[in-house]
């Protein structure tokens, strides 16, 4: 099960009316992993997922899922579930009608689980899908997606519109479903901190390209924050890439790669070595300057 690539993108390019959304995008995602697709708004997350789901065709390059091109493909359509805000269902169907329909289509459909989750979320079974609030729709769409138990489940910002308490519950529901029935899941989000505990891998996309694809542990341990005397730190980090730099009256801090520093040595010099969250790592790797928003106000 380990190490088998299920989804492969090779030099994928996608254009919309002369605007290049993705270019030279190459990545490979192994079977059975729960990964996060992280990126800022407009980075290309939704476009990539739509390409993987077979909803769009690449302008250039190749995408293979289960060894085949997913566009207009029956085999891939039968095994990929794409959850997104714009998911459409027959208008005037109640949520229970939709579940009954899903039961006919999806061989692994978990009808009882779906109903119980719906009940937990306080959505009545006779509610009409088009009458649901934004948060309820997102919750419903996610329940639908999980209950279908498709081998590849692509979730595009599934928590949009949900309030905080149901969000935590839904993340846990994803984890529990993943444990009960392991499958390949890719969750796209620009809120990594909410969900990083669930992930095995992080795929960072920026400006239509993959900037980083590593295990969660690697990303969490990738960078460190050094705080202390400005001259000492500058001297020590002169030959390193600096991802972030901040200077104010009392502190000087930089963010550099953990594997470039000797923690014990720095501690003797009274320089604080602090961890950097995965979310911050993604932010630093995709930001324009080294000073963050403060640069704008300089």
């Amino acid at each position: 099960m380990i190490g088998v690539p299920e989804i492969i993108c090779h030099q994928v390019e996608k254009r919309y009316r002369n605007k290049r959304v993705l270019h030279s995008l190459t990545c490979s995602i192994n079977k059975g992993k729960l990964s996060g697709l992280i990126g800022r708004n407009g980075a290309g997350k939704s476009t990539l997922l739509k390409l993987l789901a077979g909803h769009l065709k690449p302008t250039n390059g190749e995408i293979t899922v289960f060894g085949e091109c997913p566009f207009n493909n029956l085999k891939t359509a039968s095994n990929i579930m794409f959850v997104e805000e714009g998911m459409t269902f027959p208008p005037l169907f109640t949520v229970l009608d939709i579940f009954k329909m899903a039961k006919d289509f999806y061989p692994n459909w978990q009808h009882e689980l779906a109903k119980r989750l719906l009940d937990y979320a306080n959505i009545p079974t006779n509610a009409f899908h088009h009458n649901l609030s934004k948060g309820q729709k997102s919750t419903f769409n996610l329940i639908y997606g999980l209950a279908s138990r498709c081998t590849i489940s692509l979730l595009d910002e599934p928590m949009n519109g949900m309030d905080e308490s149901i969000r935590t519950d839904m993340y846990r529901a994803i984890l529990k479903e993943y444990i009960a029935y392991p499958r390949t899941i890719i969750i796209s989000s620009h809120h990594l901190n909410e969900m990083e505990h669930l992930l095995e891998e992080i795929i960072l996309i920026d400006n239509g390209q993959i900037k980083l694809h590593a295990s969660l542990d690697d990303v969490q341990q990738m960078l460190v924050r050094l705080r202390g005397d400005i001259n000492l730190i500058r001297k020590l980090t002169s030959d390193m890439e600096v991802f972030f730099e901040k200077e104010d009256l009392f502190h000087y801090e930089v963010v550099v790669e953990r594997n470039k520093i000797d923690e014990k040595l720095l501690q003797t010099m009274n320089i604080l070595v602090q961890p950097v969250t995965a979310s911050e790592v993604c932010k630093f790797m995709t930001s324009k300057g080294k000073g963050g928003i403060d640069d704008v106000f300089k």
């Binding site: 099960m1 079977k31 059975g32 289960f66 029956l74 085999k75 039968s78 095994n79 999806y106 061989p107 692994n108 138990r149 498709c150 081998t151 029935y181 392991p182 499958r183």
Partner: peptide
């Protein structure tokens, strides 16, 4: 890992 669904046209 579960096997793929094979549903006919």
């Amino acid at each position: 890992m579960m096997s793929l669904n094979e549903i006919s046209f």
